[in-house]
Amino acid sequence: MEQSLLDVRNLHLYYATRKGVVKAVDDISLSLKRGETVAVVGESGCGKTSTARAIIRLLPRNVHLYRGSIILDGKNIMELDDERFRKDVRWKKISMVFQGAMNSLNPILKAGYQVAEPLMIHENMSKVEALKRAGEALRMVGIHESFIDRYPFELSGGMKQRVVIAMALITRPQIIILDEPTSALDVITQANIMNLLKKLKNELELSYIFITHDIALSSELADKVAVMYAGEIVEMADAETFYVKPSHPYAEKLMASVPTLRTDKQLDFIPGAPPSLIYPPPGCRFHPRCPYAFDKCMKERPTAVDLGSGHYVKCWLYA
């Protein structure tokens, strides 16, 4: 079997809040090969973004527990101190496109300078050289080099998103985490950005961790899909298996609730609301909403069941 590029094992990230401990990421494991994309899908508040932040170690101040191992290229980067992590890993090996990032561009700095900044910070590159590289990066994301001197307000939404992608690309990382990279864009612009991400992936042999709530959109990039529910990954499968027939009841229901354009299907929905991450239900966290739930589901927490060829499901139905 091919060596994986990134191997996340038993990752935990809990936050301490005034109301209690939020178990945002609760013992998740996933692996990623070079040039592969794993899509992390789930509803809002399921811990998708926290997973991304835990991997790139951009944590808020109120961390209660941050544990597990993250092996990148055979090295456990959890063992690095913050300073080393910042210098050697973040942006150099793993970069990120944040949710709503196009609104986070600094309005008073030129686009080119913002793209070049990671190089100046992480590689102590001179401004002239960094700007030259920024021009190349902009060309790669389909923006003419002359836009290097434009300010964010002179760019359209789609172009700003491309600039943000160029910022994530410029240090030539192996992995880019995409957190809802098209959430505020129109469908046609979104399709254009997806096309760009597909091209970049093939040209640069990039690996993506693609975080989205939109299952249909996740199929645009995903080689593998991880379905998150209440801080856990409940199903992990390759795209061919997942989009045709997901196994976990939650994933199955979620898929059934996706309206399709080209085919007519009976839509289904999941009654109830996602659980609190402070007091998750005992046993399987999905059991209060699960149509197949039986006694065991209410008492015991299911472990991951291997269904073969990297297909894992956390469900007692398969045990």
Partner: peptide, 21 residues
């Protein structure tokens, strides 16, 4: 053309959509 339906084939092809906004 821009709207995907969940389909594992999606990732292998580029969508034929016009550029611009």
């Amino acid at each position: 053309k821009a709207i995907p339906d969940p389909d594992p084939e999606n990732r292998k092809v580029l969508r034929d959509v016009p550029p611009g906004e």
